[in-house]
Computed example of a mutant assay.
Amino acid sequence: MIRVVGYSFRFQKLMDLKEREKEDSKTKYSESLGFLNREMQELEGLTQSLQQWEEKRVELERQATPIQRLLEIHSYIQHLENLIVKKHEKVHEAEKKTECLHLELSEKMRDFQVWEKWKEKTYKEYQDEMMQREQKEMDELAIQRFVRRGGT
C-alpha cells in the first residue's frame, strides 16, 4: 500500500471499501470451505458406518441370529442410507455455495487489483511530476548562480 507524505489518492476511501469487500468475501469463502469439508467428513463417516453395519449383517446372517435382531439391523441400515442421501444433498448444496463464493471472491480480487494498479499509476505520475519540478528548481538555481557570477 502506497502512503507518502504529500501524495493523496483521490479515491482512497473507495479503494478502502473495495479492500474491505475483498476481505469479507475471503472470510465468507473460507467459512464455506470449512463447512463443505465438515459435511464431506460426515458423509464419509456415514458411508463407513453403513459399510460396517452391512458387513455385520452379512456375518450375522451366516450365524444363527434371531430374525428380530436381523430386522433391527436392516432397519438401521435403511436409516443410514437415508442419512447418506440427505448428506449427499447437503454436500452438493455446500459445493454450489462454495463455488459461487469463489467466483465472487475472484471478482472482488480483480476489482481491487484494478484500483490498486490505478493508484500505483497515479503515484508514479506524481513522482514524475515531483522530479520534473525538482529538476526545474535546480535548473533555475543554476541559472541564477550563473547570472550572479557574471554570466561568463
Rank of each mutant, 00 (worst) to 15 (best):
residue 78 Q to Y: 05
residue 119 K to F: 00
residue 93 E to H: 08
residue 130 M to H: 08
residue 111 D to Y: 02
residue 148 R to Q: 06
residue 114 V to Q: 01
residue 59 E to G: 11
residue 87 K to F: 05
residue 148 R to D: 09
residue 31 E to G: 14
residue 109 M to E: 09
residue 121 K to Y: 06
residue 7 Y to A: 00
residue 76 Y to P: 08
residue 116 E to H: 08
residue 95 E to I: 13
residue 148 R to F: 02
residue 34 G to V: 03
residue 125 E to C: 14
residue 116 E to G: 11
residue 151 G to P: 14
residue 30 S to T: 15
residue 88 H to I: 10
residue 8 S to F: 11
residue 48 Q to A: 09
residue 8 S to N: 15
residue 65 T to W: 00
residue 114 V to R: 02
residue 135 Q to M: 12
residue 90 K to T: 09
residue 114 V to P: 04
residue 12 Q to D: 12
residue 49 S to E: 12
residue 146 F to L: 10
residue 132 Q to Y: 14
residue 75 S to H: 10
residue 55 E to A: 07
residue 111 D to C: 02
residue 20 R to W: 10
residue 73 I to L: 06
residue 119 K to N: 03
residue 6 G to V: 01
residue 89 E to H: 14
residue 98 T to H: 04
residue 55 E to Q: 09
residue 85 V to F: 06
residue 1 M to C: 11
residue 115 W to A: 13
residue 123 Y to S: 00
residue 67 I to G: 08
residue 43 L to Y: 11
residue 58 V to D: 14
residue 71 L to H: 11
residue 14 L to E: 00
residue 34 G to N: 06
residue 21 E to C: 09
residue 61 E to A: 11
residue 34 G to Q: 04
residue 73 I to D: 02
residue 126 Y to K: 02
residue 82 N to E: 12
residue 118 W to D: 09
residue 43 L to I: 14
residue 89 E to A: 10
residue 124 K to L: 13
residue 30 S to N: 12
residue 43 L to H: 04
residue 6 G to T: 02
residue 128 D to V: 14
residue 119 K to T: 02
residue 34 G to Y: 02
residue 23 E to N: 11
residue 126 Y to H: 03
residue 48 Q to I: 13
residue 40 M to L: 06
residue 114 V to W: 05
residue 43 L to F: 09
residue 101 L to M: 01
residue 28 K to F: 03
residue 117 K to R: 01
residue 65 T to V: 00
residue 27 T to G: 14
residue 133 R to W: 05
residue 25 S to R: 02
residue 137 E to W: 10
residue 136 K to V: 15
residue 138 M to E: 15
residue 46 L to P: 07
residue 116 E to Q: 11
residue 32 S to W: 03
residue 111 D to R: 02
residue 6 G to M: 00
residue 20 R to L: 08
residue 97 K to P: 08
residue 122 T to G: 07
residue 30 S to V: 15
residue 134 E to C: 14
residue 19 E to W: 08
residue 5 V to P: 07
residue 42 E to F: 04
residue 63 Q to A: 03
residue 151 G to R: 05
residue 131 M to W: 13
residue 133 R to A: 10
residue 44 E to W: 07
residue 26 K to S: 10
residue 137 E to N: 13
residue 3 R to Y: 06
residue 134 E to Y: 07
residue 121 K to E: 12
residue 6 G to K: 00
residue 77 I to T: 01
residue 45 G to K: 08
residue 49 S to R: 12
residue 69 R to A: 14
residue 64 A to G: 02
residue 113 Q to M: 06
residue 80 L to A: 01
residue 50 L to T: 03
residue 122 T to K: 03
residue 70 L to K: 05
residue 45 G to Y: 00
residue 80 L to M: 01
residue 120 E to H: 11
residue 25 S to D: 00
residue 117 K to G: 14
residue 130 M to D: 13
residue 88 H to F: 09
residue 147 V to I: 05
residue 51 Q to K: 08
residue 74 H to Q: 11
residue 105 L to K: 11
residue 105 L to G: 10
residue 102 H to G: 13
residue 132 Q to V: 15
residue 85 V to I: 13
residue 30 S to C: 13
residue 147 V to H: 08
residue 135 Q to T: 12
